[in-house]
Amino acid sequence: MAINLSKGGNISLAKEAPGLKSMIVGLGWDVRATDGQGFDLDASAFMLGANKKCAKPEDFIFYNNKQSVCGSVTHTGDNRTGEGEGDDETILVELDKVPANIEQISFVVTIHEAQERGQNFGMVSSAYIRLVDKVNNKEIARFDLSEDASLDTAMIFADVYRHNGEWKFKAVAQGFQGGLPAMVSHFGL
């Protein structure tokens, strides 16, 4: 059963996906039907050390740096309009290949140039971000961005982190001001 995360939820979902090995973060939205600048949503991942910061730019996985050096985290490509069915951007994570110095991975979603374009999630149709267990294709968590984060332009969606030798998942769903650049400095880059 997938859990629908409410805003600010901060629940451990370890029971939902015991022994999570590999996962997909999927971001989807509808192409803008009205006239005006398109909606360009981006999914990104920050690979963090014990201090909850990125040690180097290579640990920030996004549309311009699609794979981590270790190969465990892969961004499958930038979608700039939302065209296509299902997930429009995905990030794959092979948890057993993540280097030992990485303690946590945080997943974020942002609207590209949200401020310049005067956009927020509520203006986008059917925008969501979700986490899927890649092994059995089960959806672990989903957040409805259009409905439940309508006035936000950026969000920290979720963290996966090491705990007693296994990976656990925590829903964060926390709105964030300033878009991707502010996220980058928040995570120490």
Binding site: D35, G36, G122, M123, E147
Partner: peptide
């Protein structure tokens, strides 16, 4: 807030489990 739109969707009410509102403010040239 607008550019060349000649018609606007101002606001809508819609059913999603219950009645909701969406302030749209988007339109069609």
């Amino acid at each position: 807030d607008f550019r060349q739109e000649k018609a606007l969707i101002i606001i809508e009410f819609y059913r999603k489990d219950e009645w909701r509102f969406s302030v749209v403010g988007q339109g069609f040239n």
